[in-house]
């Protein structure tokens, strides 16, 4: 049961371009130069009903552009997409009424009126029958603990409270496809966790298909078994999260804070088994294969004046970087040329 089919989706923006300074500004009056910027390049994938897919990539990779095309906000330059049987950018009302795009940095609720009034407006827009509206609102209120917030104007809410309200507002019409663009950005850890478990729960209960972008690995780990990675608009990886993590987060970073940094380079290189090493003002950090983590850490603890030692997974950005650096990991058929 395919919910989303994307076939060689391509988006190029035309942006004006000029050098800085007055001369260039005057020049641009006469002759305007533009540049083609490729945001999404021939991306293809399919997502089934009920799937939660992490959509990853560094800033500017083309994630948001892709989501906007799938939500019907942007027209692609070329390529096809079908979501719930519709072509999104034809913007049929029946399609818009069955999907939601939630952008962490974008306000969809009305700023000056109580949250509940915005919800009532959504009820009218999405033509939700009273009984359904009430039962969904009750459910969302309970799950996201909104009781105290419903009667406050949106402008009086904290960022986290607002995000909860935004999410609830976008789910009142029970969308079958949910696009979440950085839903936890700027939120504290507890709120991030709550939103994560809520999304998982929503997916479980309704069987809705969820596509999620996030810079927080924890979001992706908690929610997505599958991830799609894009970089410079190109699809680089499409597969299980465990595959991705296993393959590319095969290293860990050991960061050591030292009492005094007297060890010399040769000594340190021996201690860490020749793995890449960085010195900082307070100590060193070294990236080692997972299997060697314990051994190297033990050696460091035994032989250096260690104040503190931390073992970390590499951050998601660097995992993506590694996917990008490893061309053999590209699934066949997804490789793109030209553009």
């Amino acid at each position: 049961m395919t919910a989303i089919t994307v076939d060689r989706l391509h988006k190029t923006y035309t942006v004006p371009e000029r050098e800085g300074g007055l001369r260039a500004a005057v020049g641009s009056l006469v002759r305007r130069r533009t540049r083609q910027v490729r945001a999404v390049a021939e991306v293809s994938f399919e997502i089934d009903h009920g799937e939660v897919v992490g959509f990853l990539g560094p800033n500017g990779a083309g994630k948001t552009t892709t989501l906007k095309m799938l939500a019907g906000l942007l027209h692609p330059t070329s390529g096809e997409a079908r979501v719930l049987g519709s072509t999104p950018w034809q913007r049929e009302r029946s399609y818009l009424s069955r999907m939601a795009l939630i952008m962490g940095q974008r306000n969809q609720l009305q700023w000056d009126i109580p949250v509940l009034d915005s919800y009532r407006l959504n009820q009218a827009v999405f033509r939700i029958p009273d009984a359904q509206f009430r039962s969904r609102l009750d459910e969302l209120t309970e799950l996201l603990e909104l009781q105290a917030l419903l009667r406050k104007p949106v402008r009086n809410l904290s960022l986290g409270e607002r995000m909860k309200c935004e999410i609830a507002g976008s789910l009142l019409h029970a969308p079958q496809v949910l696009f979440l663009d950085e839903p936890t950005i700027g939120l504290d850890v507890a709120m991030q966790r709550r939103i994560r478990s809520f999304v998982a729960d929503y997916n479980r209960r309704t069987g809705a298909c969820v596509m999620l972008t996030s810079h927080y690995m924890a979001d992706v780990e908690a929610l997505c078994r599958r991830v799609i990675v894009i970089h410079h608009g190109r699809l680089l990886f499409d597969g299980g999260l465990t595959d991705l993590v296993h393959r590319f987060a095969a290293e860990k970073t050991i960061t050591v804070e030292l009492e005094e940094s007297r060890a010399d380079d040769a000594d340190l290189a021996r201690l860490v088994g020749g793995h890449p090493l960085e010195r900082s003002a307070t100590g060193i950090s070294v990236r080692v294969p997972k299997a060697e983590t314990a051994r190297v850490a033990a050696r460091l603890l035994a032989e250096l004046p260690v104040v503190d030692l931390v073992v970390e997974e590499p951050p998601i950005e660097s995992v993506i970087e590694q996917v990008f650096d490893a061309p053999e990991e590209q699934p066949s058929g997804q490789e793109v040329t030209g553009g």
């Binding site: 049929e92 069955r98 298909c209």
Partner: peptide, 15 residues
């Protein structure tokens, strides 16, 4: 139902 997904039933007609 299979094409449109699990929660299509009872949706208003937006056409």
């Amino acid at each position: 139902q299979a094409v449109a997904g699990p929660t299509t039933a009872g949706r208003p007609d937006f056409s």
